[in-house]
Design a protein around this nucleic acid. Sequence first.
DNA 1: GAGCACTGC
Length: 689
Amino acid sequence: MPEEAPPSRAGSCPPGRRVLMLLTASGGGRAGGGRRPQPPLAQPSASPYREALELLPIFQARGQLLAQLRNLDSAVLIGETGSGKTTQIPQYLYEAGIGRQGIIGVTQPRRVAAISLATRVSDEKRTELGKLVGYTVRFEDVTSEDTRIKFLTDGMLLREAISDSLLRKYNCIILDEAHERTIHTDVLFGVVKAAQKRRKELGKLPLKVVVMSATMDVDLFSQYFNGAPVLYLEGRQHPIQIFYTKQPQHDYLHAALVSVFQIHQEAPSSQDILVFLTGQEEIEAMSKTCRDIAKHLPDGCPAMLVLPLYASLPYAQQLRVFQAAPKGYRKVIISTNIAETSITITGIKYVVDTGMVKAKKYNPDSGLEVLAVQRVSKTQAWQRTGRAGREDSGVCYRLYTEEEFEKFDKMTVPEIQRCNLAGVMLQLLAMKVPDVLTFDFMSKPSPDHIQAAIAQLDLLGALEHKDDQLTLTPIGRKMAAFPLEPKFAKTILLSPKFHCTEEILTIVSLLSVDSVLYNPPARREEVQNVRKKFISSEGDHITLLNIYRTFRNTGGNKDWCKENFVNSKNMMLVAEVRAQLREICLKMSMPIMSSRGDVESVRRCLAHSLFMNTAELQPDGSYATTDSHQPVAIHPSSVLFHCKPACVVYTELLYTNKCYMRDLCVVDAEWLYEAAPEHFRRKLRTARS
DNA sequence: GAGCACTGC
C-alpha cells in the first residue's frame, strides 16, 4: 500500500516566469467552467448558467484579459481545470468586436467537446444554436451566415485549410487543449502561424491566434509564436492527497488489486474508485478478479459494483459508468487512458494510478509503429491524479515510488513524432506549403520519419518532383480530398478501373472506423457460430463486405446487429462514412459501378492499391513481407488465421508481441506484378517462376 | 500458433 507524501496540487506546476497576470479564485460554486464536457447523454439537464458565471474566476479578470488580448497578435493562455477559459474567452473577444470582420474559431480535439461547448455558449448568449454560436464537426455543420463563434474539431479546421490556407473566414483562431498535442493541433500550429504571417505581408485582415493549454509547460508555445506573452488563469481544482509506494512494484496489477480492496474496506461506500490499467484484456481480467473477491468480503463491508471501461466496449456498457451505483454499493471503474481525457466521470474520490499505459511508439530506424505497454509521462500522471479532485478533495494512489516518478519523462511525446506522416504530408502538399520537408513544426519529426512518408506517397503515385520542388500529381490532389489514409483514398480512386467502386467504398468505410465486430470473450463459441455464414476464404475484406451486404439487405437494424455480434454504433458510422465518401466520388465525376457478385475484381483492385503491403508464405510455413522480408504472422482476429494462402495483401502491420498483419486479402502474385512491375522486379518469389 | 491504447477528417 502506498505511503503518504505531502499533499500536492493536481493539474499543473506553479506559474512560470513570463506570467503577465495572476488571478485568484474566489467564491464557491462549481457549475461553471467545466472544461471537459461529458457526452451529451451524461450531461445534467439545464443548469443555472448565469449564476454560476459570475462566480467564475475568469469573470473578474475580463477587463484585464481583454485589454491584453485586444492588442496582441498571439497569446498563450494557461488555465487550470475550471477556469472557464474555453467558454468565456470566445465571448469576451466577440463582445470586444473581434468577431465583427470574421469568425472566431475555437478548435477542440474531440467531437463531443466541440458540440457541447457550442451548445453551452449559445445558451449563455441566449441564442439559438447555429446562429451566433455554432459548431462544425465531421458529418455535422451547425453554422449559418450569422455564426461568429464557431467551435470545431482540429481535424476539421485542418481540412478547411486545404481549400483556404490563409483561413480568410477567420479573424481569430483559438487552439484549445493545446497541451494534448494531437497530430492535428500540431499541424495547425504551423498552418496558423504561416497564415498569420502571410496575411500580414499581404496587408489583409490580421489573424489573432490564442493558444490555450491546461499545463504550465508553455515555453515551447510561447517561443514558437515569436515570444507570445503568457497569460495565467487560476482554476478551481480541489486539493488532492498523493500517496506513493515505498518500494517499486514489479507487479502493478497485484498492487492495484491490493489498493482497491484496502480503500474499499476503509472508505464510505459513496466514494468511488477509478483505476488506470493499460488494455481490454487486463481490464476484463481485473474486473472478474475484483467481483470474485468482493463476493467473499467480511460483513459490514460495502458491496462493490465493478465497471470496466475502454473504447471498444459497446456504448450501452460505457454509459453504465455515469449511473449512480445502488445504495450501499461502491463503484470501481477500471479503465484505460480513455478516462484521462475523453470521458469524465463525476463522483470519483480515489484514483489508483499504475503508471502504465499502452501507446504507440515510432521507431525511426525501422520506420515501424509499435504498440507497447510503457511508463506514463509526468503530465499524464498529473492528468490522472486530477481525475480525483473534480467535485471535492480527492486521493490518488500512485503505484510507484516518488523516485521512480521523478524519472518519468516530463511530457508525453507529441503524436506527430509517433505515427505515420503520409496523411499529414499529403495535406500539407494539398495546401501548397512551399517546402514540406522543412515545414515549421513546433516539435519536428525526424528527417527519416518525414522521408518515409514521402516515399509512401511516391509509391502511391501522389507526388511529382520538379526542379527540387515536391508537388502533387492530379491523383495526389484527388487523394487529399478524401478524409482517409492515403492508401485508402488511392484504393477508391483505382476502383473504377475494376468496376467495383460500390464494393470498395463499403470496404474502405469498414476499414476506416473501429471494428464493427464485437467479440465478448465469454461467448466465443456463439460468436464463431453466428459469424460462420459471413466468412469468406478469400479474406477479411470480402468477409466484411458480406457482413455489410447482409446488414443492408435485412434492413440494417439494431436487433440484427445484436444477434450477429455486430457493434451497431460503429455500423451506423460506417454507413455515414460511406455516404460521405460516395458524395466525394460523385463530386469528382467518378463513375460508380458495382461488380455485383464478382469478388475477384474487388480483390484485384485491393492488390493494385495495397501492393506495398504484401506477404508471402515461406517454405517453413511462416510469412515474410515481400519488400523487406520482415517476418510477419496472421493476426488471430483474421478469418485466415488458420489458413495458409500463398500470397496476401494486408491493410496494416501491428507490432505487439509479434509483428501481425491485420485485415488480409488473398491475391494472385501475378496481379501484384501487374500492379507495380518496377517495384516487384526480382522480389516476388512466385510471380517470377 | 493466440490478440487490439486513444482520437479525428
